[in-house]
Every structure is written in C-alpha cells, then in structure tokens.
Amino acid sequence: MKNKILLSIISIWIILAVFGVAYNCVKSVAEIKTWAFLSDAQKKEMLFGDLYDFLVFIEKHTNKNAHILIFSKDVRTFYYSIYNLYPRIISVATNKQDLAKSLAKTKYDYVVLYDQNASVSGYKLEASYSSKLTKDFGGIYKNND
C-alpha cells in the first residue's frame, strides 16, 4: 500500500513536470516578446524604474572618483547606487537629521537629493532631474570649494 501511494505520487509528479515544461515553454515565448528586442538600458528601466534613469543621470554629471552623499528614503537607492556608480563612493542619508549630521561631518564632492527637498548649504545646484514617466525628481549639488 505504502509503495502504491509512493508510486502514485511520483506518477502525479511526472505529469505535473511535463505540464510544467509546456507551461514554461509558453511563458518563455511571452518573455522573449517582452524582453528580447529591448536595449540594455530599456531592460534596466523596466526592472528598476526611474531609479536606473536617475543613476545614469548622476553618472553623467559627476566625476568618476567623486564622493557622493545621496539623500533618499528608499533603502534600495543606496545599494543600487553602489552597484551602478562604482568607483564613485556613495554615502546615504535616509532622513533630514541624517543629512544634516553627514553634511556637518564630511565634505562631499556632490550631494544628491532623490525625491526629497532639503537645503544643502555650501553646495550649488549642478543639474536637475525630473522623470518622464512618474513624479520622481532629483537634483545634483556640487561642492562650492
């Protein structure tokens, strides 16, 4: 009896696996239609939304070895910035107190605000960003020194 049950489970498993392959084949065709004809940048925009666009914007307006403070409430911004913007050194502030503390302690090459409004004395606006698709906005402020 135990063996018969085991055999039945394995038989159902095999049937499900065959259906799974069929399902995955159909799904892959749909995935190809969605992704295959996009550029690398378009794919990253689809995956990471405005954040990717914004990081490309930062990359364009900052030096390669700059030390940048990013003020953003989204924790993903920090890790994704480190990944995308290396060798730029990224620090992050997630609230206004953090931002004030960091600015008092360290002289950054740039301060970047993403979806946040704040005053950053000692830095002047280098470039502004506004998303084409959403309400996201941002600004890059360069150290006056």
Binding site: I5, L6, I9, I10, I12, W13, L16, A17, G20
Partner: peptide, 9 residues
C-alpha cells in the same frame, strides 16, 4: 512540484 511532499511522505 512534489519533491518535498514526496520526501516528507
């Protein structure tokens, strides 16, 4: 699929 169910059984 039924991997872990079979294993538990």
């Amino acid at each position: 699929n039924l991997l872990w169910i079979t294993y538990l059984y």
